[in-house]
Simulated scan of single mutants.
Amino acid sequence: MMQEHKETERIIFKPVFKIIILILISFVVLGALAIMLYGPKETQVALEEGSPEAIENGIHLRTGLIDAPDLQAVITNCTTCHSSQLIIQNRMGEEQWNATIRWMQKTQGLWPLGDNQKVIVDYLVKNYPPLKKGRRPALTNIEWYNLDE
């Protein structure tokens, strides 16, 4: 009797198990198709252009850097060690960028850039120059008064 019960269980559970596996595989396949067809716009742009380095509205999506000639040299040499946000927030002129590169070479282990240094600095000066508006001027001609205790 015990043998018959086990055989009945096998007969019932085997098809049920197959159906469950088939449903799980269907969910995985359909989910992958949905992501490919309706995924984030950046992914679609990258696939359409044939490159994982998509540009949208003149901005390199992965780094946030401005799309301009020699962008790839900056990505290759600069974002290897630090975030592109460090570049974007540090707006400098040619002399300051070159001094910063020398400092990174002397203290941070940056390799010699050779001819790429001029290419990189030109990109940075053109696209991330110093802002014309800086801090407010120091206050002058202030008439100070004492606060009563």
Rank of each mutant, 00 (worst) to 15 (best):
T100A: 08
I101L: 13
Q72L: 05
P137V: 00
L86N: 11
D122K: 02
L110A: 10
I87T: 12
G134D: 02
D122H: 09
D115F: 03
P69W: 13
I142E: 14
Q105W: 01
L124I: 07
L139N: 14
L139D: 13
N98Q: 13
L147Y: 05
L86S: 15
N141R: 11
T100H: 07
S84P: 08
I142H: 06
S84Q: 09
N141G: 13
C78Y: 06
P69I: 08
L139S: 13
Y128P: 07
I120Q: 01
M104H: 04
M92G: 07
H82N: 12
K133I: 12
N77Q: 10
I120E: 04
Q108Y: 01
T79K: 01
L113Y: 01
Q96H: 07
Y123Q: 08
G109Y: 09
S84D: 13
L110N: 07
I142T: 15
T107Y: 14
V121M: 04
Y123A: 03
A138R: 04
N141K: 13
G134T: 09
R102Q: 14
R136M: 13
R102V: 09
N146C: 04
V119H: 03
T100S: 12
M104Q: 05
V74N: 06
L110F: 09
I120W: 00
P112C: 04
L71M: 12
V119I: 15
R136V: 08
I88E: 01
K106P: 00
N141L: 03
K126M: 06
I120F: 00
R102I: 12
N116D: 08
D70L: 04
P129C: 10
P130Y: 10
N127Y: 00
E143T: 15
W111T: 13
P129W: 11
I88A: 06
M104K: 09
Q117D: 02
K132L: 15
T140Y: 05
P137E: 01
W144V: 09
K106Y: 04
K118D: 14
L147D: 07
H82T: 01
L131F: 09
C81W: 03
I101S: 04
A138L: 13
E94Q: 07
T80W: 12
Q89T: 15
L139M: 14
L110R: 15
K118T: 15
K106L: 07
T140A: 14
I87R: 07
I142W: 06
W111F: 05
Q72E: 15
N90I: 12
L131V: 11
T100R: 06
G109D: 10
S84Y: 04
V125H: 08
K126S: 10
I75H: 01
N116Q: 08
N98E: 08
Q96D: 10
V119Y: 07
D122A: 03
D122V: 03
W103Q: 08
N141T: 14
I101H: 02
N116Y: 00
L71P: 12
V74Y: 03
Q117R: 14
A68H: 15
K132R: 14
T80P: 01
A138G: 09
R102C: 05
Y128D: 08
D115G: 06
Y128H: 05
E95V: 00
T76R: 07
G109E: 13
R136Y: 03
E95T: 02
G114F: 10
I120M: 02
P137Q: 01
V125G: 05
T140S: 11
V121N: 02
I142P: 07
G134V: 07
R136H: 09
Y128C: 11
Y145H: 11
Q72H: 02
L147C: 04
W103E: 02
Q89R: 11
L71R: 14
